[in-house]
Design a protein around this nucleic acid. Structure first.
Length: 278
DNA sequence: TGCCAGGCCGAAA
DNA sequence: TTTCGGCATGGC
């Protein structure tokens, strides 16, 4: 894999990524597909457009932005081939990995991961996207990108300062107070997500679960998608019984395995009670 | 029109 | 320790 700056964009050769699978597998909520096959999204306070041609990934950004933001966000320094090959050693995982080929775990901003996965509880992905979009439009910083208007994900201080009426306008239901409490904990320095990222996974999990409205599932989603803990395994309620069936539900890449499983089973519309027969 | 969703919480058994 | 109802909302 190497990079080349050309024509106002960055080309990453042999990037081993499927943008479709990466963005639609349920790990993130802020990427929009364009008619030309590209995707436009906002992360880490920046907007960008990305697309693939063959094995190459293209990003509409400067080389400086690529190095500072996007190489890390897309986890492009990590070689996914041996990981995927290792996971695919049993038949079920082989099918899941084949289905989700090119899926990469994004290194999202920790607070955004926490906030969006609190919204995710008992919710549909399209509706999660709408709630997150309303939040960003309500209080996120406006970003100009190629003549388009985008909005950054608002920091915890801004969310903590929202009025009850503003929170209600998100139409997030009973999850809104959970998000506000989490935002307040961060804004007041009672919880430091950057610190958790550097520490032990179990310690971070316990700290996250101490928040009201954050259980094991949401905590592990934050660990996996926001704190780069690839061994975290966000077990779905219906997936609990399958936990013992797949050896990849443990180990250093359990989170990646889990995301392949989640994406595979959701896309295939596989019934929740039938996972044992897969 | 109902069903149900990347759940969590607190009470009851 | 496990089970269960309630919680808001709206896409399908």
């Amino acid at each position: 894999m190497n990079t080349l700056a050309q024509d106002n964009c960055i080309r990453v050769s042999d990037a081993q990524i499927s943008l479709e699978h990466t963005f639609s597998c349920g790990q993130c909520f802020r990427w929009e597909p364009g008619r030309d096959g590209s995707f436009t999204g906002v992360a880490l306070g920046r907007a960008v457009r990305v697309w693939t041609e063959g094995e190459d990934l293209y990003l509409r950004c400067t080389e400086e932005e690529y190095q500072e933001v996007w190489a890390g966000y897309f986890d492009l320094d990590r070689d996914y081939r041996p990981i995927a090959e290792g996971l695919a050693r049993d038949e079920f995982m082989r099918r899941a990995v084949e289905h989700g080929w090119g899926l990469r775990i994004l290194r999202q901003e920790p607070w955004e991961a926490l906030c969006t996965f609190i919204f995710s509880q008992c919710n549909h992905i399209p509706r999660i996207r709408q709630i997150v979009d309303r939040l960003c439009r309500l209080c996120g910083e406006e970003l100009k990108f190629e003549g388009e208007r985008h909005y950054a994900f608002p920091g915890p201080e801004r969310v903590a300062a929202l009025s009850g009426e503003e929170l209600g306008s998100l139409r997030a239901g009973y999850r809104a107070p959970y998000v506000r409490e989490a935002a307040q904990a961060l804004a007041l320095g009672q919880l430091d997500l950057a610190e958790l990222r550097e520490g032990e996974t179990d310690v971070a999990r316990q700290a996250l679960m101490a928040l009201n409205g954050v259980g094991r599932k949401v905590a592990d989603c934050v660990l996996l998608f926001g704190l780069n803990k690839l061994e975290a395994f966000p077990v779905d309620t219906w997936m609990k019984k399958a936990e013992g069936l797949h050896p990849d539900c443990a180990g250093p890449y359990a989170g990646i395995a889990q995301q392949y499983i989640f994406y595979y089973m959701r896309e295939k519309g596989i019934d929740k009670g039938r996972q044992k027969s897969l």
